[in-house]
Amino acid sequence: MSCLLFLGHFVALCFWHVSAVTVESDNYDVQQLEFGEATLTCRYRLEKDQIVRLEWKKLDRNGDVSLVYFNNSLADELEKRAKMMGPNIWFSNLSREDSGKYRCEVSAPQDKRIFQEIVIQLSVLVAPSVPICDIPSSATSGSVVELKCREKEGNPASEYKWYKNGLAIERSAKAVNSSYKVDKATGTLHFNTVTKEDTGEYYCEANNKIGKPQRCPAKRMQVDDLNLVGIISAVVIVSFVIVLCGFGVCYLQRRGYFSGGKSEKENNPATQAENDFKHTKSFVI
């Protein structure tokens, strides 16, 4: 009796699973090169033969949803390079903007479970572009220096490698307490303290294993010691010029060049006294 009950529950459980719409895909992670072709598959099984509602939607990185296939028609921007093959979508001439998550939704109103969906990731693979490098032309010994390298086209994201005089800079190339650090993910070569030995030609290479690695033009970085003699000499010369200018101003002030434009009569007491005497004499006569 117990065996019959168990068998009955098992049959009921199996019937429940097959009595609802089920949706699946042949590939949930589709990767294809840019300008190539890709097919997103969406297979479904129904409890009863019926007309289903099939929709495809795209989810962007911000979680926003856009319609791809709705009311038995593709979105306008896809009509010329995509088509429906049953419930599946076939893409031609893939672009990097096609990358994202695609959701296949199937509604079967006559089944016990009337709705199910699956999500498929489409990754359009793009080779890296030529990276942009920020390399200083000169630096002073003992200072902190950072070389930067970045490219934004590659998918997946590129890893970066730095070269000096044509040789790859590896973290293990120096001692553990080395003054520099290479970040392969951000493309940064960071020197805590540069030395004259760090002088050389540097360039960076970006690689995501899609297409050929790309590198920026090499640029020389010259590292020199701080010129204390030159700094002291410059300070002495500037101080001498300031003192010389001060003496010049004092001399010109004493000569009356900064008197404010007074007349010669006002500046000569003898001439003023002579004029006063002539005026008085004329008055007496």
Rank of each mutant, 00 (worst) to 15 (best):
5 L>C: 04
209 K>D: 05
20 A>N: 12
167 L>G: 08
65 V>F: 08
5 L>G: 06
241 V>H: 01
198 D>I: 04
204 C>I: 06
189 L>T: 06
28 Y>K: 10
256 G>Y: 05
125 L>Y: 04
244 L>N: 00
223 V>W: 09
172 S>P: 04
159 E>F: 11
267 N>L: 14
220 R>L: 14
110 Q>E: 13
132 I>E: 10
279 H>T: 11
66 S>V: 11
234 A>W: 12
143 S>V: 00
149 C>I: 07
244 L>R: 00
127 A>Q: 12
139 A>E: 00
263 S>Y: 02
210 I>P: 04
9 H>T: 15
118 I>P: 01
273 A>G: 09
276 D>R: 10
190 H>P: 03
162 W>Y: 08
275 N>R: 13
210 I>R: 05
186 T>N: 02
127 A>G: 07
105 E>R: 13
61 R>W: 05
110 Q>M: 12
11 V>R: 12
223 V>R: 11
258 F>W: 07
222 Q>Y: 03
50 Q>R: 06
206 A>Y: 01
120 I>P: 01
48 K>E: 13
133 C>R: 03
267 N>A: 14
188 T>Y: 05
246 G>K: 01
29 D>F: 10
80 K>A: 13
142 G>F: 07
81 R>C: 11
16 W>R: 15
129 S>G: 15
269 P>E: 12
134 D>M: 07
10 F>R: 11
9 H>N: 14
